[in-house]
Amino acid sequence: MSRTDTLLEFPCRFPIKAFGERDEAFETTVYELVKPHVPELERDDLSRRLSSGGRYVSVTVEIVARSKDQLDAIYADLSASERVLMAL
């Protein structure tokens, strides 16, 4: 399999999860990082969940992924953010 090959068939529903410290603005940060890559993204496409200790939050964004390049760009932007501790 070459670097550009993928097991995904596009377009497809794809969940992206970002973890950060609990902060009311974290969800907005994730939304603003993903929105340029997914123009049809709505706030309803995001869900959040607190960690068991309440210190961290995970935000899941459900998108319709169009390509591997699109996903790579989203993950690059999330990973470059100081506020995002991890993106899956």
Results as ranks from 00 to 15, higher is better:
L88Y: 12
P11I: 10
E62D: 14
A25M: 07
F26D: 00
V30M: 02
G53A: 13
I74N: 04
I74M: 05
R83H: 11
V59I: 15
K35W: 01
R22N: 09
P11E: 13
T60L: 04
G20D: 01
M86C: 09
G54P: 08
D69Q: 15
I16L: 12
S67A: 12
P11V: 13
R66H: 13
P39N: 11
E24S: 11
D45V: 05
E27H: 02
E42F: 00
R66N: 13
L8F: 07
E62G: 09
S67G: 12
E82L: 10
T6N: 10
T60M: 06
S81G: 13
R49A: 07
Y75R: 15
F14V: 03
K68L: 14
S58K: 08
E9Q: 09
E82I: 05
D23P: 04
S67M: 10
E42K: 12
P11H: 14
A80M: 08
R43I: 03
A25I: 05
K35F: 01
M1D: 09
D45F: 04
D77P: 03
A18S: 09
M86D: 12
S51R: 12
A76G: 12
M1W: 05
F10P: 07
L41I: 08
D23T: 06
H37Q: 10
S51W: 08
S2A: 04
S58A: 09
F10N: 12
R83G: 02
L46P: 07
L85G: 07
L85P: 03
G54K: 10
K17A: 09
R48G: 00
L33G: 10
K17P: 03
Q70V: 15
M1H: 10
V30F: 02
Y75W: 15
D77E: 14
D45M: 10
T6D: 12
T4L: 05
Y31D: 06
V59W: 00
I63W: 03
E42W: 00
D23Q: 12
V38G: 01
E42I: 01
V34T: 04
L46F: 03
K17F: 05
I16K: 05
S51H: 08
L85Y: 08
K68R: 14
P36E: 09
T29I: 06
Y75H: 15
P39W: 07
E62N: 13
D5A: 06
A65F: 03
L7H: 04
L46V: 08
F10H: 08
F10Q: 07
E62K: 11
